[in-house]
Amino acid sequence: MKYALVHEWLTPEATGGSELVVQEILQHINADLYALIDFESTNPESYLFKRPIGTTFLQHFPLARKGVQKYLPLLPVAIEQLDLREYDVILSSSHAVAKGVLASPQQLHICYCHTPMRYAWEMTFDYLNSSIAGKGLPGILTRQLLHRLRQWDAVSANRVDYFIANSRHTAQRIWRCYRREAEVIYPPVNIDRFSVQPHKQDFYLTVSRLVSYKKVSLIVQAFNQLGLPLVVIGSGPELPLIRKMAKSNVRVLGWQPSEVVQKYMAEAKAFVYAACEDFGMALVEAQACGTPVIAYGAGGALETVRDIQQHPDLGTGVFFAQQSTAALKEAVETFEASQPAFNPDKVRANAEKFAPKIFKERYLAYLDHCYQEFEARNLG
Rank of each mutant, 00 (worst) to 15 (best):
G315I: 11
T334I: 13
T316I: 10
E24R: 12
Y363F: 15
R243Q: 14
P198A: 14
F39H: 07
L84H: 06
I185K: 06
P76H: 08
Q151P: 05
H199Q: 15
L5N: 03
E45C: 11
Q197R: 14
G317H: 04
S195L: 15
T42A: 10
K353V: 07
V318T: 02
A321G: 07
Q197S: 15
V220Y: 01
Q287C: 08
E238L: 14
V6P: 01
S130D: 11
E375A: 15
S248E: 15
L230F: 08
A31D: 05
V261L: 01
A35V: 06
E336P: 02
S104D: 10
A331M: 06
R243H: 01
L75T: 00
G297T: 08
G17F: 05
N158S: 15
S258H: 13
P116K: 04
T170D: 10
E303C: 11
I140H: 06
P187W: 10
K214S: 09
D126N: 08
G280E: 06
G139T: 00
W152P: 03
V220F: 05
V160R: 00
M245S: 12
G136N: 00
N158P: 06
R51W: 01
A157H: 08
Q225P: 04
P198D: 13
K2M: 15
D278Q: 09
A286F: 02
D192F: 12
K247L: 13
V89Q: 04
R118S: 11
V252Y: 04
V231T: 03
E24N: 13
Q27L: 13
Q151F: 14
M245G: 08
A35F: 10
Y119F: 14
M281G: 12
Y34V: 09
L75C: 03
E45F: 15
L149I: 10
A266H: 03
Y178K: 01
E277Y: 11
I164T: 03
S212T: 09
N166D: 11
A182M: 00
G317A: 13
I37Q: 04
L226M: 06
D307T: 01
L82F: 04
K247Q: 14
P240Y: 05
A157I: 08
G317N: 04
Q262T: 10
K50E: 13
P73K: 08
D368G: 07
H147C: 11
R173S: 11
L253I: 05
L84P: 00
V21N: 02
W255M: 13
V260G: 07
Y273L: 10
Y264C: 08
V189E: 03
M281H: 12
P257C: 11
A327M: 00
R65P: 01
T334Y: 09
N30P: 01
A351Y: 00
P237G: 00
E238S: 13
G234T: 00
T304W: 03
Y204I: 10
R150L: 12
A103T: 14
F203G: 05
E183V: 10
P344D: 03
S104T: 15
L218T: 05
V252K: 02
D202L: 11
I308G: 02
L137W: 00
P237Q: 01
G380C: 05
V347R: 00
R179K: 15
G234L: 04
F57P: 01
V97M: 07
F320W: 01
Y363L: 14
A270L: 04
P198T: 12
P340V: 09
M281N: 14
A337S: 11
L253D: 04
E45D: 14
F61W: 06
D345K: 07
R306S: 09
